[in-house]
């Protein structure tokens, strides 16, 4: 049973404090939704946990199964079992999807997958997400539409099988069909059992497909309210306005 613990996390960009004491525990088998208005610090939380160099941790702790994630490099965190599906996946010129994925799978598993097995896994994964097999030979994320980039993120999620997945606005910019395909991918990943999901979103839309166990409302760089799935319904009706005012 894996557990991600975020304790009193403070994060700054330059001199500006963005996160002001975030406390959150995500265990395997659980799906947590973090919801909040733009600029509330949701994405900062995701990138800070993953170790993006732009963000400075000023205090607090992030532990995965008791191990200090903040002491690890970006790649060590990923190999320890953390995955971040990015809101804006990066285009990497000249590096093909298949080369990228094989390198990632090799790094995370600690050994190169058998070529035939990998080819099969890749094909099945792409089929399940309705990704054209020709994408394997294309440069990573280069010239992909928004929806194609998000599918590609979920493909990585399914291939890398992390302990904890942080999904940063994976639903943004998706049409209904793409949202369904991507949600099914997330649900397949959840159904494997021993994994936890932290779903960061602005909208309740994706929560109709990916049912959360817990909902946290984020405003002003911290969690301001917590509850069950019913909290998402309340946000759907009332919006974030009262939280934004309270945190200002």
């Amino acid at each position: 049973m894996s557990t991600l613990e975020i304790r009193d996390l403070h994060v700054a960009v330059g001199d500006k404090e963005i996160l002001r004491g975030v406390n959150l525990t995500v265990s395997a088998g659980e799906t947590h939704a973090i919801m909040g208005p733009n600029g509330s610090g949701k994405s900062t939380l995701a990138y800070a946990i993953a170790g993006h160099p732009k963000y400075t941790i000023t205090s607090g702790a992030v532990l995965l199964d008791g191990e200090d994630m903040l002491a690890m490099s970006v790649d060590e965190r990923a190999r320890a079992g953390l995955f971040l599906a990015m809101q804006y996946p990066v285009e990497v010129p000249g590096v093909s999807v298949s080369n990228f994925l094989r390198s990632a799978v090799t790094a995370v598993r600690g050994e190169a997958p058998k070529l035939r097995e990998f080819a099969k896994d890749l094909k099945n994964g792409m089929d399940a997400l309705s990704i054209d097999p020709a994408f394997a030979q294309r440069n990573t994320n280069e010239g992909f539409s928004g929806g194609e980039k998000k599918r590609h993120e979920i493909l990585q999620l399914e291939l890398l099988k992390p302990k904890i997945a942080v999904l940063d606005e994976t639903d943004s910019g998706l049409d209904v069909d793409a949202l369904r395909v991507v949600s099914e991918g997330i649900n397949r990943f959840r159904d494997t059992g021993d994994t936890g999901v932290l779903l960061i979103t602005h909208y309740t839309r994706i929560l109709r497909y990916v049912k959360p166990d817990f909902v946290h409302v984020f405003a002003g760089g911290r969690i301001v309210e917590e509850g069950g799935p019913e909290l998402a319904d309340k946000l759907e009706d009332e919006g974030y306005e009262s939280y934004v005012k309270a945190s200002a």
Binding site: D75, V92, N99, S103, V108, L160
Partner: peptide, 17 residues
């Protein structure tokens, strides 16, 4: 960052890029 976030060590990420 993107490559490292998928577990690929820095040197290997640099090599790929």
């Amino acid at each position: 960052f993107y490559l490292q976030a998928r577990g690929i060590p820095y040197d290997e990420a640099r090599r790929l890029v």
